[in-house]
Each structure stands twice: as C-alpha cells, then as structure tokens.
Design a protein around this nucleic acid. Sequence first.
DNA 1: AGTTATCGCTACGCTACCGTAGCGTATTGA
DNA 2: TCAATACGCTACGGTAGCGTAGCGATAACT
Lengths: 193, 193
Amino acid sequence: MDQFAEDPRIRRSKGAVLAAAVELFVAGGPRAVTVDAVSERSGVAKTTIYRHWPDRAHLLADTYRSCLPVVAQPGPELGPEESLRTVTRALVSGMGTAPTRPALPHLIATPLDPVESRALPSDVMDQTFAPVVAAIERCAAEGVIPADTEVAEAKHQLVGFVIMSGIDAGCAMDEALADRIVELFVAGRRARG
Amino acid sequence: MDQFAEDPRIRRSKGAVLAAAVELFVAGGPRAVTVDAVSERSGVAKTTIYRHWPDRAHLLADTYRSCLPVVAQPGPELGPEESLRTVTRALVSGMGTAPTRPALPHLIATPLDPVESRALPSDVMDQTFAPVVAAIERCAAEGVIPADTEVAEAKHQLVGFVIMSGIDAGCAMDEALADRIVELFVAGRRARG
DNA sequence: AGTTATCGCTACGCTACCGTAGCGTATTGA
DNA sequence: TCAATACGCTACGGTAGCGTAGCGATAACT
C-alpha cells in the first residue's frame, strides 16, 4: 500500500505524464505545460492526469522539481577546497545535462511567476545551492579564503558563473570548467586578502 | 511627419500603454502582459493599442526592450581597468534599479520562450553586454589580465556575478559591489597567471 | 471654421485551456 | 475466478485572451 508497492498502472501513468511534462517544460517553459498537451504527448488520458494531480499547478510543480539537479553534500573526509571542487563539479555536471540545462532560464523565472509558482515554495532553488553554500562556509572557516567572506556574495559569484555558462549553449560544462571556476574563485578571494 | 513631430495624442497613447505594460511585465512576467490587461491599466482602449502595434508579440517586444538597461561604452581616454570598472558600475546600477531589477528573471527567460519571443531577435541580451565584452577584451589586450583569456568565459564570470546579485532581492546593487566584482575578477585572473 | 486623424466604446467570433461527469473496458491482486 | 481499481473516451460548461468591425465623439492641424 505504500509508494513502493504502488499499482504498476499508476506508476506507469505518473512516469509517462512527468516525462512528457518535462519535455514540454524544456521546450517551451511553464506555459507549454498544459494538461491537454501533456495528455496528448504522454498518451495518458486527461482524466487520468487529474486522478493523480489535483490541478495543473501541482503537476507543474512536480515537473519543475524533476528538472532540478541534485547536488550531493560531500563527507567531512574531504578537505575544504576539495569539498568545494567536488560540489562545483556536481553543480556544473547537473546544470550541464538534460533536462536541467535546456530548462535553465525557465527554472530561474518560474518561481517568480505568481501564476505559475502557486504550488512551489519560494525557496525551491535555495535547496539546490545549499551544498555549495556549506562548502563556501567551510572554506572560510578553515582559511582557504578570508574568514570575513560574505557568504551570500560568494554564492552569487560562484553560482552566477555556473548558471551563465549553462545558459550559453556553446559552452562545455565539464570538469575542467568546474575546476577553473573554483580556481578563479579561490585565487581572487585569496589575492585580495 | 517624422517621429519627433508625432501627433501628441499618439505619443500619449504609446507612452501610457508602454508604462502599463512594463508594470505588468515586472509584476508577472510576459504572461501578464495581455492586451486586455494593458488596456485596462493604461486607460487606453484596446482598439487603440492595435492601431499602434500589429499584435501582442510586438507590444511585448517593445515592453521587453523598455526593461533592458543601457550601458554606455566608455571612451578611449580611460585606461583598460578603469574602463572595465566604469562599465561594471553602469551594469550594476542598471540592473539594480527598476524596472530592470524586478524584471531580471523574466528578462533572462523571455527570449528563450518560443511563444513569447516571436517578435524578439535571439541576441537581444548580447547587445546589453557588448560594452562589457569590449572592456574585457581591452583588459586582455593591454595586460591587465592574461592575454590568452577566454573572453566568453570571462563574460560568464563577470555578468553571472552581477545577475545573481540582482536576482537576490536582499543584495545592495551599489558602486561598492561593482568595484568588488571587478577586483575579484581581475585578482583571480592575475593570480592564476 | 473646417478637414482630418485619433480615440473610446460596444459587441463580436474564435481559440486554447481548465476541470468535471458518466460510462464502458482492461488490468491487477486476492 | 472474481471483485476492486485504474484507465480511456467523449462530451461538457466556463473562462481568458486575441484580434476585428462599426460607430460617434474629440482633439489636432491648416
């Protein structure tokens, strides 16, 4: 009766619906995720969609979450700088692959749309960046960068670099880029004292 | 007969329409800029709107452009680093004030929406960043940062920092921030060799 | 003063989309 | 095998938005 022993018909329907919704979101943003379009693309009847989601806003919220990258928090066995590098690599990798990358602009704008974000908490994005912030704080605490570093500002610096790279379709989102981003970040902060 | 000797009734109508459209765009993104809503908010009749814009897509395109900040290209009498600082200050200032700042996420997402961007050239945003790119190129050419700097990547770094700061409503977009951004940018690039 | 252009208003037809009801069919799990 | 459940299908009613037509009133130029 729990979600792991769910009726296979339900699992199939939900999966097909979310897959189609993500495709539509990537191609055309939240506005393209209409119940009719999702129904047609997924082959799942509209009435069935409404059996599993109360309304379009909740379907869109699940679609949105399906596009967010998941960045793992590295364990304490890694040093602070290694930790930052690991997290940044994960972020670059997640934001560099589908469905996140093509959806990136929409992922930024959707939570601020009062109509489309009705079923989304206002801090959805923060959760994704939490491991990055934690790594920056460790770097500041353990002397990799100055102890008086403004963490919020440092987050803007690091994450902004990653996001802008991801928005530029011609940019290679690989480990080398992640490492350069971390290196430039740390070098600049250190040089300034 | 030219656009400077335009009928004052036309000027008034266009101005009221665009002002209302920008307000709606800022508050709710492109989706909120409906012809009916603009008509009601501006007090200009819907039929009059269609006398000056062929369709909603063109009205939205003009609204979008009204929200873009204009960054002036500094003259050659400034040194390369001063030039970069001036341009960054202008960018931070422009992106830190209304209507650009509250519209920022929508400004990023709209050009990638195939429906909403129908009357927008794909490189609208590039024009805004062109002076920044030029300043970066001068810094690379005149030895402020390494000559082999990847300009596109450096643009992502600098502009990404500014945009992320602007999206965070709690961040002060002042000259001090602009100067820190430039300093961190240059210091990091220089330290890496 | 008279001509011309602009404006506001009402009323359309059309389309897309939301969310629901009712009914018959097919799959699942006991 | 059999009851329960999920599904697909068709058909709605309702709303929001686009773009147009026709008309009288009003403001601008000459």
